[in-house]
Simulated scan of single mutants.
Amino acid sequence: MSVSQRTARTPRKVAVVGIALSDCGRVEGPTPYALHAQAARRALADSGLDRGVIDGFASAGLGALAPVDVAGYLGLRPTWVDSTSVGGATWEVMAAHAADAIAAGRADAVLLVYGSTARADIRAGRRTANLSFGAGGPLQFEVPYGHTLIAKYAMAARRHMHEYGTTLEQLAEVAVQARANASRNPSAMFREPISVDEVLSGPVIADPFTKLHCCIRSDGGCAVLLAAEDHVPDTAKAPVWILGTGEHVSHTAMSDWEDFTVSPAALSGRLAFERAGVRPGDIDIAEIYDAFTYMTLVTLEDLGFCAKGEGGAFAEKGRLRWDGELPVNTDGGGLSACHPGMRGLFLLVEAVRQLRGEAGAHQVRRADGSLPELAVASGTGGWFCSSGTVVLGR
């Protein structure tokens, strides 16, 4: 009888037991399916478990019947599936759903996997760089005016600057410190240090964002394996526990967004911290979705690391570096390391890597030299339309 067939009298603890990246950066040749498979095999090998324990599968963004197509490609026949798709926050929300299912005994081990050849597809003319959304529903009132995704983020950033005096230099600091983290990560796509002046002098993409305020475009994939505590004794690595999760969806049309300076992470973060029984001040590292510099800044505020309006000042003086006061996006983030379409799952991989002490030259250490104990991964989807936050601990 499998673990999940037993009656769960009390919720089971859930751990991340396997993580892996596929080949990332400039990847020529492999299909997105192949990157899914590569990441999945590596994550399973990292866990030390047999593939037969996997009875749950979560995937989005690929295939006519996601995740059925991808599960079939991987040779899996899961009895629990999730194809939630809420943009970049998808993977934190999926992790929350999977953890709930495992805790309740509905699944034993759930594999979350993602892969994309976004960069290669653009170069080959198979897709455009700008997201295209249908004109039905609430978006029909914005699409005719050519209101692109980056323009929506730029509007929100400008509002924060107007309300709180946030400066272009403070936003640029987010990019500079992300690159400083990437410079120590051999897997990062861009590692050459940059300065605030270089960020500010770059070509304008959507005011106030210049090129270096925006995420890179890469190929790549990753996978995360979650499992019930019953399987932990059989794993190859020490477990990293899911302590608390939260999710929240906000708006689709910009006209329905009540305050451009508050993201849905304000609620998903509060829920995750409350359920984990910890406070923002307890967190050692933060992995935050950073398609644009403003995302990092406002999410730091909404997660409670600083007061509303103080994100710009908080980001100064190297606080976000791997060796700073609050290391953020320790691998270099979407601004410098990798961003193959949706980055949310990469946040979980990097958080676990740091908690395990496997990050090499960009490994975070506490003041006493010990490994970090607590991490938060917070993904954002759409144009601050959705948020998923996960608190993890050793």
Rank of each mutant, 00 (worst) to 15 (best):
A99F: 02
F305H: 09
V204T: 13
P203K: 14
V390E: 03
P239V: 02
L243Y: 03
S59H: 15
P203T: 10
G381E: 05
T330H: 06
L374N: 09
T235S: 13
R343I: 12
A34W: 07
D230W: 07
L347P: 00
H231M: 14
T245P: 09
L74T: 02
E373M: 12
V204I: 13
E358K: 09
S255L: 13
G379M: 05
L21S: 10
D197W: 10
V27G: 05
A129R: 13
G63Q: 08
S386Y: 05
F273M: 07
P372H: 12
H248D: 14
P280R: 04
W80H: 10
C306W: 04
R191L: 00
H160A: 12
A154N: 01
V93M: 00
F305W: 03
W257F: 00
S201V: 00
G136V: 02
M161C: 12
F346G: 06
S250V: 04
H248P: 06
A227K: 05
L326S: 06
Q177G: 08
L212S: 12
T166A: 12
T128W: 07
A265C: 14
E316S: 13
S195K: 09
T128A: 14
R51Y: 00
V176L: 04
G393E: 02
T90H: 01
L348E: 02
D302R: 08
